[in-house]
Design a protein around this nucleic acid. Structure first.
Length: 258
DNA sequence: ATGTCTCAGGGACTGAGA
């Protein structure tokens, strides 16, 4: 089965591109971030017409996450248990598979703005809460995949110009330490389990012709629990989705699970 | 290189967030 994640930067604007991508790539699961829609405005009709179910946790203007799936999502949970957060950034659900239930956690990690911002402190607190919560979730759901926009480039090879980005938000050491705390739960970065092209990124700033010059960062990730990582046979970034008319600034990332 | 895109408020543009 194929599971995927995509920061769409407004589902209202990006709906045609999302429907096109679903039709072409036929994922079993697609996690969306930055839907920027309240649940009552979610385009459920168009999604269902495309053959998918959807659960969402949205708000007006900012943030918002959703899980699209072929089969009906079960045990849907919104947010991080024990972390009071007005921002809609996490939705989780279970999906039946032949190998047993698959737990999907769709996350939109705070951007942090800059390392001297109060939003950066919020980002680090948020990541600590996510990690603590996931430790318990993994006990409950051993076949767990965490997909989303992490707003962290894990290593220098995930950055087009590591020197320019050194100690900047998305690349700073405290963020990378927080990311490694997630890995320490036994999670595996699916993308790095396979040989990949050099200079592989998932996000490029709209400005400065960044995409055309491939000046990007790899911040959209799929982390798999140990049990699931064994069954992963491929992982890749779909740069083509960044070449379409009116693209998101992010490209989708997907992986294959047996 | 504060250079693009999206959204809300409010009825043209500005500011916020990314």
């Amino acid at each position: 089965m194929k599971i995927a994640t995509w920061n769409v930067n407004s589902l209202k604007v990006r709906l045609p591109q999302v429907l096109e991508w679903l039709a072409t790539h036929q994922p079993d699961v697609l996690c969306l971030q930055e839907t920027k829609l309240e649940d009552k405005n979610f385009p459920i009709g168009a999604i269902e017409a495309a053959g998918y179910r959807a659960v969402s946790s949205g708000q007006k203007t900012y943030n918002g996450v959703a899980i699209l799936s072929r089969s009906q999502a079960q045990e849907v949970v919104r947010g991080i248990d024990g972390f009071d957060d007005a921002q809609q950034r996490v939705i989780s659900a279970s999906l039946p598979t032949p190998s047993g239930p698959l737990r999907i956690v769709c996350a939109y990690v705070p951007n942090g703005q800059s390392i001297d911002s109060d939003k950066y402190r919020y980002k680090l607190d948020w990541l600590a809460a996510l990690t603590g919560w996931l430790r318990a979730e993994l006990q409950q759901h051993p076949r767990l995949a965490l997909l989303g926009d992490f707003n962290i480039a894990p290593e220098d090879r995930d950055v087009h110009d590591p020197l320019a980005w050194k100690d900047q938000v998305l690349c700073s050491e405290p963020e990378r330490v927080a990311f490694r705390e997630l890995l320490a739960l036994g999670m595996v970065d699916a993308f790095r389990r396979f040989e990949q092209p050099e200079n592989s990124y998932s996000w490029w700033d709209y400005r400065m012709m960044a995409f055309r010059r491939n000046r990007g960062l790899r911040i959209d990730l799929i982390l798999l629990s140990g049990a699931l990582a064994e069954s992963c046979t491929a992982c890749g970034i779909d740069k083509e989705a960044r070449r379409v008319e009116r693209p998101s600034d992010h490209a989708p990332v997907s992986c294959e699970l047996i």
